[in-house]
Write a protein that binds this DNA or RNA. Structure first.
Lengths: 232, 232
DNA sequence: TGATCGAAAACTGTTGACAGTTTGCGATCG
DNA sequence: CGATCGCAAACTGTCAACAGTTTTCGATCA
């Protein structure tokens, strides 16, 4: 995002408190403030050069996003979802992404399909080179593109909210346990269904893609838990 | 909810600002403050006997729920979703409810199935008597029961948020265009699939139920729009 | 009579201060 | 030496006031 667009965003979202919300959200998602830890309102206020009022408003908004939890008289804490919640989120995300695929299959333009194919080729090239640093942003953009292109803003907002919460679980690398090629074959199935304008098949392929990501996370988590037990 | 549980809720949600959030949300959903109108912070503050700080925090939380919109230097406005957004919401709600049905079919206890059958019989009785006042709360409880029983708290939270937004659209009566019997036959299909412990069929029946509600809303809306045009 | 301009009122955004609670630490006692 | 009690510091929850913007309303002019 360029400076002009950023300035516009600042004005649009309600100057101080809106900016703070984004800044604090970034700080949380970047892991600057670790999950489970308490957030100090004064510290944030002095850090951003404001008073506590806007900080509190921003935190209240972040509570709505499910990123923090407010405990009376004790303050706000960064949420740390249990594995059970991560599973719940994946299940919901799966049907949402399925809906995105189904919708897009029914309304994709030729240009959009070409764009999807382009992403696919770039990701396959990155996978061949084992270039994860190149692969990761492509993968992100690919999924974002689908969510946006399906044209359902409500769906997009819900989906993004879930992904943010999942970031708190901080297991991004674990999910790539199956390797880049596995993911890519799933991506190919998704794009083919959309290109064939087959909503049913697209829905299934998209939902299945997330379901398999969930399975990979689960397997990695249990593997990690087993190792932790052996270490004890 | 009794007084004790209410007091507990008050303490749990952060006394003032949490209570305000619920109160204001109720005021909005009851239609006390009409969609599109601006909310006056001072008025709310004096009405609840507090200062503006907690009111602003509560409004900020409601923004996260999508019930109000904040416009810089102009205040918060009650959102009034367009028909397009209502359609989006129904589509998302459909897959969420489908997931609830699928999940519940895979884990329903005998007691839960019995409860569902009970709801079904009561609703059919109410429908036979054309007793809409008895039917409506039953219908609500039936759907709530399914959402809760499926055991996915994330799903339940998302679903409830969507339903709240839909309340802003204020077309509850329109949706009952098909009559009580039509809804009930769909309900029966849902319960039968759950009782048969058939996740696939349950998912489809549940998703279809919401999809048909969407179609009923759409038909009613276009009928209303046509009449408005004829009046002009 | 209608439109335009300007000032006053109303309201939002933000701040600093105060009250009440929680937490951490040191002293005291078993 | 360990546990418990009490005090002080830190922090949250709330409030009232101030600054800046928007809106309203009346006066002026074409």
């Amino acid at each position: 995002m360029n400076a002009a667009a950023d300035a516009l965003t600042i004005l649009k979202t309600r100057s101080l408190s809106g900016v703070l919300e984004r800044e604090i959200e970034q700080a949380i998602l970047n892991g600057e403030i670790a999950p489970g830890r308490r957030v100090n309102e004064n510290l944030l206020a002095t850090r951003f050069g404001t008073s506590r009022g806007p900080v509190r408003e921003a935190l209240r908004a972040l509570e709505g996003l499910g990123l923090v939890e407010l405990i009376p008289n004790r303050g706000v804490f960064i949420r740390q979802p249990a594995i059970e919640e991560a599973i719940e989120i994946y299940d919901v995300r799966s049907v949402l992404f399925g809906l995105a695929g189904k919708t897009l299959a029914g309304r994709a333009t030729e240009a959009q399909i070409a764009q999807l194919c382009d992403y696919l080729e770039q990701m396959e090239a990155a996978a061949r080179d084992r270039d994860f640093d190149r692969y990761y942003p492509l993968n992100l953009a690919f999924h974002e593109f689908i969510i946006d292109a399906c044209g359902n803003a409500t769906l997009a907002a819900q989906y993004r909210g879930l992904v943010k919460k999942l970031h708190l679980f901080r297991a991004r690398s674990l999910v790539q346990g199956g390797g880049l090629e596995v993911s890519n074959s799933e991506h190919r199935a998704m794009v083919e269904a959309i290109a064939a304008r087959d909503p049913e098949r697209a829905q299934h392929a998209h939902a299945e893609h997330v379901a398999r990501a969930k399975a990979r996370l689960l397997a990695a988590h249990q593997r990690a838990a087993g190792e932790a037990q052996r270490t004890n």
